[in-house]
Amino acid sequence: MIEEAVRSGLARYEYRHFIVFGAASEFAAMATECAGDQGAWWEFKDAYMLEGLARSFTQAGALDLARAEGLDLDQFSQCLDNDAHADRLLLMRQQGIADGVTGTPTFYVNDRPGARAIDALLEQIRAAAEVAERAGS
């Protein structure tokens, strides 16, 4: 449903890591960011979130994913080993706390807290688009 709003040009969608389940989640978030360096951010996000590949929460699993996506494995491994995006993940968490996030998932629509129910969230998106359109015209 959110994809429809995005595909129609009404909205853009941003995913931010907000780690609540510990080291495995943090590793997966780091792996996603490292994959993002090579243009495969969304492939990894979907692999982790949609496909629920538990094994991919390990280093070996992440490397399998990276190999499957044709990534440069040396670059990817180096990124993981160096925690290259630790600051970015910390920044996302700090921003989430500043925004008032207490659990996941939490949505915001143009900086306003989003509804949890998808229909209410879509209504919020439409309302926000109307407000933006009026402000732009």
Partner: peptide
């Protein structure tokens, strides 16, 4: 340039 930004904070697990 979309007028609406949807932000999701989430954890994969």
């Amino acid at each position: 340039d979309a007028p609406v930004l949807i932000v999701e904070y989430s954890d994969y697990q």
